[in-house]
Each structure stands twice: as structure tokens, then as C-alpha cells.
Design a protein around this nucleic acid. Sequence first.
DNA 1: AGTCTGATATGAGAAATCTCATATTGCTTT
DNA 2: AAAGCAATATGAGATTTCTCATATCAGACT
Lengths: 222, 222
Amino acid sequence: MVTINDCGIMEDYYNHFPLSDYFGFDIHPYISIIQFDSEESLLQEGRIPHFLYYLIEGRAKLFLSQGNGRISLINFLNAPCFIGEMELLGAQEVANGVTAITPCTCYAIRVNECKDKILNDTKFLRYLCLFLSQKAIGNTYNYSKNQSYPLEVRLANFILITSCNRVYCERHTEVSEFLGVTYRHLLYVLANFVKSGYLKKTKSGYYIQDLDALRKIAESNQ
Amino acid sequence: MVTINDCGIMEDYYNHFPLSDYFGFDIHPYISIIQFDSEESLLQEGRIPHFLYYLIEGRAKLFLSQGNGRISLINFLNAPCFIGEMELLGAQEVANGVTAITPCTCYAIRVNECKDKILNDTKFLRYLCLFLSQKAIGNTYNYSKNQSYPLEVRLANFILITSCNRVYCERHTEVSEFLGVTYRHLLYVLANFVKSGYLKKTKSGYYIQDLDALRKIAESNQ
DNA sequence: AGTCTGATATGAGAAATCTCATATTGCTTT
DNA sequence: AAAGCAATATGAGATTTCTCATATCAGACT
């Protein structure tokens, strides 16, 4: 974790990733820029957060751990987005866990210094409502899917969405958490896809050999 | 579905269920009062809603149906709460389905007549953010639980929460949807509880015979 | 190269959950 | 009361998913 204080660099970020769309007042005095390495925590589960983050570059994951040691990956967080907004509002005191997947660069807003301004800023509040709604809708859609279809269908979908140039190469541990099944079971279903000739294991990932078959499986859904 | 226009009755409702906590301007000119019977739709899935509702009495359920005919019960909505707020913001165009469980009385706000006022009302926006956050947190928690524990554990919990005077008497169809399992499986696990002597089937519902045992099962969670 | 270690993968059997066919129950209607 | 019908309940076997033990692999260290 590195905090950037150099004014020149900060100016540069402000120009490339402006905040004026979200705030009706000048938020710059309350901002630091923080960079996280991959695997670092942005918010620690159960702790009271210090900042409202705005993720400008990178990808993180939001998770919730259960008493039995199991971890639910609730969502992937992709730039640009706010992180820690629920805690800001007081909807929950302590944070859910958020961990960087790739290196992440964030504006860290010192809310304790400008809470009043923020909570009276129509522009920000309106945007936040929209953001919260969209997040909720996405989550809900995801939950509902997870419960309604066997892994085969959901995985086919997931592969189609996340593959790049016909190559699927996500980390199995992450995916199994996101799809809400055990690592073992994910591998099992994936192996089935290979056995059926839909995928082919290569050094750089799984190559999609039979796109149509995969689509057909995914569609037993729609 | 009945719309109440009688000014006297409306005044009465306003006095008992005031809206001044949520709005910074006078919202009354834009309100009707609507009553729904149980099983009636407040929002029809896939349709564009006309109103923002504020549920003042009653209990409803929010669901989402899947291509394979399966229905996910996303949440129970208990008074007091807003319904249709995401659609108001434009976060989604068409509504999720909302159906009354008990008879429901709502303030129906004609948003097309006061959208500007509403979307510039700090008081309302702040409250809405909070409301959305809490809803999201609840959903997430529920979702995470649903995936992390077998039905036995979740059902024990659910029974403890929803039972009244040691009697559990929810509708199985609703519960199975909410807990994300088939009706059959719910009955199966419930029958096990009876066989183990934790519950006893009576005319008025299932009587909790062994509270401790049920708690112990539910706690294999926490 | 050898070995340690953590991450990743596989095997096998058990448990959870689903599907579908068939009963049973409780209302209406006649 | 009989018949019809929808809601509710049960049985049995198939699938999906899990658990846990073991195996393989890749990089770090010696």
C-alpha cells in the first residue's frame, strides 16, 4: 500500500479521472491517492473503515466470510466504482472484506473531514442511489441465477462472459467462490467440459473448442 | 385493488403514518392511497411502474422469475418501506415482481408529477441511500447464508425467527422459494425434524418441542 | 539436483437436493 | 353426500454437490 502525496501526480490523476460528475462541491482537499498491490485489503472485514474509496484503476473482490470458514464472494468490483459507501451512510458499522485482485489505484476520501458536505450534496446522493440500486440489481440477479441453475449452466455462461479470444483463464479458487460451489466441484464440471470436447486445456488457459455447444448449455437458461 | 380518495380518511392516514421524515417538501399533493388484497400484484414483473409506493401496512414479497420457470423469492417486504424506488431512479426500467402476502395499504406517489422535486430533495435521497444499503446488506447476508449452509441449518434458523409462541406456521411454498430449495426438499427436512422429535405437527402449525435442539442446529452456523 | 511447501488437481464415496409420479387433503359445486 | 379440482404431501430414484484423503506440480531454498 502506497500513498501518493505528490501534487503533480495528483493533478494528473484528477485530469484523467475527474470527480466533478459526482460531487457538487470541491472534494479535492479531502482526497489522498492510495495504491494497493494485488491481494492487499482495501477494507478489512469487521473493521471500521477510515475512507470512502473511489476505485479508478484495477479490480477487486467483495467477500463475506461465514462462521464455518466458508467464504462467499459477493461481487467483483471493477473501476470505476465507489467502495465503502454503505459504511459511510451508517447502514453498517463495520465493513465487508474487499481485497484487490489486480493492483488498484483509489481516491481515498477522508469522510470524517467532510461528512456533512457529502451528505448534503444532492448530486452525490443521487448518483449514489443509482449506484447502489444497480449494484443491488446485479447482485440479486446473480443470487437468483446461482440458486436456479446447476453449475454446468452457470459455468458455461461464466466462461462465455469472461473468456478472451476464446481462451478462458480465470483462477479456479476465485470462480468457485463466486459461483458458490466447492473448488472440487468446479474442477469436476470443468473436466466434464473438456471430456465432452467443449474445452481444451492449454498452457495459457482453457481454449473454447466448441463455442456452440457451450452456448447451447448456457441457453438452457436465458 | 381499491383507491381511496376520501379526504377525511386520507388525513387520518397522514396523521398515523407521516411522511415528513422522508421528504423535505410537501408530498401530499402527489399521493393517492391504494389498498391491495393478498395475492394481488403491486408491481408486475417486466412492466413499467406508474408509482413509487410507500408500504404503510402489510407484508409483500419481491420475486424474480427465471427462464426455466423457477421463481426466486428475493425478499419479504414489511411495512414501513418503499417499493419501486429503483425504478424511480432509472436504475432499471422495468420492475421486479412484487405481490401482496397480507392485505397491503400503500401511499402511491405519482412520480411523473414530482420527479424533479424528489430527485433534488436531500432528505429523501439520503434516506433512500440508507434504505437501499440496508436492503442490499440484508439480501447479501441472506444470499451468502443460503449458499454456505445446508437447508437443515437455515431452516432451523428460519423457524426460530418466524415462530410465534413456539408455533411455526409459514406457508411451505413461500418458504421453499425464500430458502432457495424445492418444496419437496423443504418438506423432507421438516419431516426429519418431526421424526427427531424437535417439532410436532399440530392443526395450527408445527409446535417446537425441543427448542434447544433446534438452537443447536441453527448455531452450527453463527 | 534434492527437498520442502503451498497451490492446484484428482479419486471415491457420502450427503444434499432435485425430478417426477402418485397420494392425500380440503374446498367448491352439484 | 358425491364429484371435481387445486393445493398440499409423500415415495423413490436420479443428479448435483460436498467432504476428505491423496496426488501432482511449481517455485523457493539448500
